[in-house]
Simulated assay, not measured.
Amino acid sequence: MSQSFFIQFGASLAAVAALVALAAWAKIAKPMTPLTDERARTLLEQEFPGRRLERIWVAVDGRGALAKSGAAALVLCEVGDGYVARHIPWGQAVASSFRDGVLRLDLSDVAAPLARLALLNWPPSPEPRAA
């Protein structure tokens, strides 16, 4: 092996080490804080201004939320290091698959095709009507 091979190998090794150190220093893979009711409400109001939120369900693990707004279901789900907001018909949300404590919502979107929310129970019980 020639001296130029060792120089190139050493330079490549140093470059890879520098990139790994930069990624560790930047904390690219930092964990997100779980959603709370207040934070979910704030994010949904920012994404859907003017919509009245009737009720909000935050996932048990804090990685998503679902809100009822008239005939629409507003969905927040964690993607990468942020949240994505989508809306689907409320009837579709109520009819979605709920197994083993996980609600699977088909969002029919290339960027976020499926939302998985860990909820205690689903569908929600109807709220009592005022007399």
Results as ranks from 00 to 15, higher is better:
2 S>G: 14
2 S>T: 07
2 S>R: 00
3 Q>L: 06
4 S>R: 10
4 S>F: 11
6 F>K: 04
7 I>G: 00
7 I>R: 05
8 Q>V: 07
8 Q>P: 00
9 F>Q: 05
10 G>D: 00
10 G>Q: 05
10 G>M: 01
11 A>Q: 12
12 S>R: 02
12 S>Y: 11
13 L>N: 07
16 V>Q: 01
16 V>T: 11
16 V>R: 01
17 A>Q: 04
19 L>S: 07
19 L>E: 11
23 A>W: 14
23 A>S: 12
24 A>C: 10
25 W>E: 05
27 K>N: 13
28 I>Q: 13
28 I>G: 08
29 A>P: 03
30 K>N: 14
30 K>R: 15
31 P>T: 07
32 M>D: 13
34 P>L: 07
36 T>Q: 10
37 D>P: 01
40 A>R: 02
41 R>E: 15
42 T>Q: 14
43 L>R: 11
45 E>I: 07
46 Q>R: 14
48 F>I: 05
49 P>S: 07
49 P>K: 03
51 R>T: 11
53 L>M: 08
54 E>R: 10
54 E>C: 00
55 R>T: 03
57 W>Y: 13
58 V>C: 02
59 A>H: 01
59 A>R: 00
61 D>A: 04
61 D>S: 05
62 G>T: 08
62 G>S: 06
63 R>S: 04
63 R>C: 13
64 G>A: 04
66 L>C: 09
66 L>R: 05
67 A>E: 04
68 K>H: 03
72 A>W: 14
73 A>P: 13
73 A>Y: 05
77 C>H: 13
78 E>P: 06
78 E>N: 10
83 Y>L: 15
83 Y>V: 03
84 V>E: 15
84 V>I: 14
84 V>F: 11
85 A>D: 07
87 H>I: 03
90 W>M: 06
91 G>N: 03
91 G>M: 02
92 Q>G: 01
93 A>L: 07
93 A>V: 08
93 A>H: 01
94 V>H: 02
95 A>G: 12
97 S>K: 13
98 F>M: 03
99 R>M: 06
100 D>A: 11
102 V>R: 01
104 R>S: 15
104 R>I: 09
105 L>A: 03
106 D>N: 10
107 L>M: 04
108 S>G: 06
113 P>C: 09
113 P>Q: 10
114 L>Y: 09
115 A>S: 14
116 R>D: 01
117 L>T: 02
119 L>Y: 05
120 L>M: 05
122 W>R: 10
122 W>L: 03
122 W>T: 06
122 W>K: 03
123 P>G: 09
123 P>R: 12
124 P>A: 12
127 E>F: 03
127 E>A: 13
128 P>S: 04
129 R>E: 15
130 A>C: 00
130 A>K: 07
131 A>T: 14
131 A>E: 12
